[in-house]
Design a protein around this nucleic acid. Structure first.
Length: 583
RNA sequence: GCACCCGUAGCUCAGCUGGAUAGAGCGCCGCCCUCCGAAGGCGGAAGCCAGAGGUUCGAAUCCUCUCGGGUGCGCCA
């Protein structure tokens, strides 16, 4: 339990003790009560709005009510002082001894400090990346990949049972295009000179696929029907593209638990899709009708025709969605119907989709679909805005047409995983992000990646020095607490307070599904740590390692180890390393 | 035309699900570097939170409208 929840509990019991009752004689509603760190630290360590929330139902003046609650809270041994401020806030300052206990608790928890049971083991599926298996990942996939992966880490840390999933779109027209492109490369491998027409994939990464087909089949494919040959080419291409994509992801420290093939839904003549659509039909969500043409400019080839539709407007969508194409085959969305059903059948209670901003149009239909499939599904769609690349302040030009896109691999190779992952999270997902190659590798305070990692290295460095001076016992966690009472400097206490926010931050970031909060917290923590460290340059008595005082050093080392642990846990969620030294 | 996202210091952005005098980095100005790691440190100036209404004890945060920017809009995936 984090200390804010702890004090919320204590305040609730105070409300009981002084026997507050609303007009009807019932215990008052405390659901809107908050216990938070105040924005201005001079106000104290904790602030609660309890008196303002209760004033109205109890028919009392907020400040009077606050005072009577405050008087009762003052009896708590852990409370150093209480005062009533502003419109009726109760500000608590906690005893130094309480913070020392907090530090002991953190050290005892070690690596697990900050973990939460918030998720209560809920089966949660996070789907992210899900790029078409038609080539290597490019930078456009980068952000969603990192956000999805960090979110999965974060949720797992917060007690959810997380499955990381990748939906492989290996069934549609784009894969046909891929197959035809590969067949050309196959002819090329057999010695023909080829020209790649407009509309096929020109990338070099398909050359090895053609070669591989030639090695396995010789010229056999040329003698087959086109359908047969295409089928073989597609299979081979998808397998090899997914290998490339898996390697790309591995370079970003990303590993999915499940790669779900769309083709398995279409298999045996679309049986699973048909079953899923039938299921929707039984619930009354399927009908045959016409859709109004889109407003604004009418598509050139618009024709008014009847089609099989999903009545998604009944469950919150803006427009009903087609399930069957004009050629009689199922739409992409029909496969989604089956896929949603599959996830539900696998027992997931919470579904998260991480998509690029250009997929904003899918959000409503996915939410509608989830509602139609079951009222037990909790669905959330996260949209990641685009990333703009800069090199030396100049935007990097990319043309999808010309094929001169920057691959994910190139970015990782140039700046490293840590920088990519941290920077992709150093902005909330729904804000666009500028990514400057030069800036993210800069070794200076201006680069948040470096700044946070430097804090980790500095913490390790201090521990090494202390061990050098006093021997390894100084860094044994058992016993650090003995001298903890010696930590009475404001900078030290401020650091403990910052560390004490960690469990609460984890919970709020997880429930808001905002992994970027972890990155910002780490920056703040690093800043507090560097700041206190720097005070040691002017005030020698504040230095962590006191060569003439083993007890004090040991206590301070406890603080340093707690900082190191939280940095390490936070960086692990982000997926960046927590270095022991900078080189 | 409709839907979704965004608009906070000169710039790039946080703002803890409605709390107190709105924060950080860069840039700018002024001090300080024989050091537990100065690939820096300390301090300062800087704001009509796009605008207008509303909800309430209280709004950058929630609702409505307006302006401005981005994205998407049968039978592609």
């Amino acid at each position: 339990m984090n200390l804010f929840a702890d004090f919320a509990k204590r305040i609730r019991s105070v409300v009981q003790v002084i026997d507050l009752k609303d007009k009807n004689g019932n215990a008052p509603d405390l659901s809107r009560m908050t216990v938070e760190p105040p924005r201005d630290p001079s106000h104290g360590d904790l602030a609660t709005n309890v008196a303002m929330v209760l004033a109205k139902p109890l028919g009392m003046k907020p400040r009077d009510l606050a005072q009577s609650i405050a008087d009762e809270l003052a009896k708590d041994d852990d409370v150093a002082s209480v005062d009533v401020a502003g419109p009726g806030f109760i500000n608590l300052r906690l005893a130094d001894g309480f913070w020392h206990d907090q530090l002991r608790t953190m050290l005892d928890a070690g690596d697990t400090y900050g973990q939460s049971t918030l998720g209560a083991g809920r089966a949660t599926n996070v789907e992210y990346v899900s790029a078409n298996p038609t080539g290597p990942l490019h930078v456009g996939h980068c952000r969603g990949a990192v956000v999805g992966d960090a979110l999965a880490q974060l949720l797992a840390f917060a007690g959810y049972d997380v499955t990381r999933e990748y939906y492989v779109n290996d069934a549609g027209g784009q894969v046909d295009v891929l197959g035809r492109s590969v067949l050309l490369r196959y002819r090329e491998a057999l010695g023909e000179t080829i020209e790649i027409p407009e509309g096929l994939y020109p990338g070099d990464y398909l050359v090895p696929v053609g070669k591989s087909l030639a090695e396995e089949h010789g010229d056999a494919l040329l003698k087959m029907s086109e359908r047969e040959a295409l089928s073989i080419a597609k299979d081979k291409a998808v397998v090899m593209m997914m290998d490339i994509i898996r390697d790309d992801l591995a370079a970003l420290n990303i590993g999915h638990d499940v790669f779900f093939s769309e083709r398995t839904l279409h298999g045996s003549n679309g049986g699973r899709i048909r079953a899923a659509v039938d299921d929707l039909r039984e619930k009354g969500f399927v009908y045959t009708g016409t859709l109004p043409p889109p407003k604004g400019q009418l598509p050139d080839d618009w024709e008014d025709r009847e089609q099989v539709l999903f009545r998604s407007t009944e469950v919150g969508d803006d427009i009903d969605r087609p399930l069957v194409k004009s050629d009689g085959s199922y739409t992409y969305f029909a496969a989604d119907v089956a896929y949603m059903g599959d996830k539900f059948e696998r027992g997931f209670e919470k579904l998260i989709f991480v998509l690029g901003a250009d997929h904003g149009g899918y959000v409503k239909r996915m939410e509608a679909l989830a509602r139609a499939v079951s009222d037990k599904i909790d669905i959330d769609v996260l949209l990641c805005q685009l990333v703009k690349l800069y090199r030396d302040g100049e935007p990097v030009r990319m043309g999808k047409r010309t094929g001169n896109f920057v691959t994910l691999r190139e970015v990782v190779n140039e700046v490293g995983v840590d920088a990519v992952r941290f920077m992709m999270l150093y902005r909330k997902a729904d804000a666009p992000l500028d990514f400057d190659f030069a800036k993210v590798t800069e070794q200076s305070k201006d680069n948040p990646v470096f700044y946070v990692q430097y804090a980790s290295a500095r913490a390790h460095s201090i521990i090494r020095q202390a061990i050098e001076a006093f021997g390894p016992e100084v860094a044994m966690v058992d016993g650090i607490g003995e001298g903890a009472d010696a930590l009475d400097d404001e900078g030290e206490l401020a650091l403990i307070r910052k560390l004490a926010e960690w469990p609460r931050l984890v919970e709020s970031a997880a429930s808001a599904m905002e992994p970027h909060r972890v990155a910002f917290y780490l920056y703040d923590l690093a800043s507090a740590f560097h700041g206190h460290y720097n005070r040691g340059t002017d005030h020698a008595q504040l230095r962590f390692v006191k060569h003439d005082d083993a007890v004090l050093t040991r206590a301070r080392l406890g603080l340093v180890m707690a900082v190191r642990n939280v940095l390490s846990a936070g960086l692990a969620i982000i997926g960046a390393s927590a270095p022991e030294e900078m080189r």
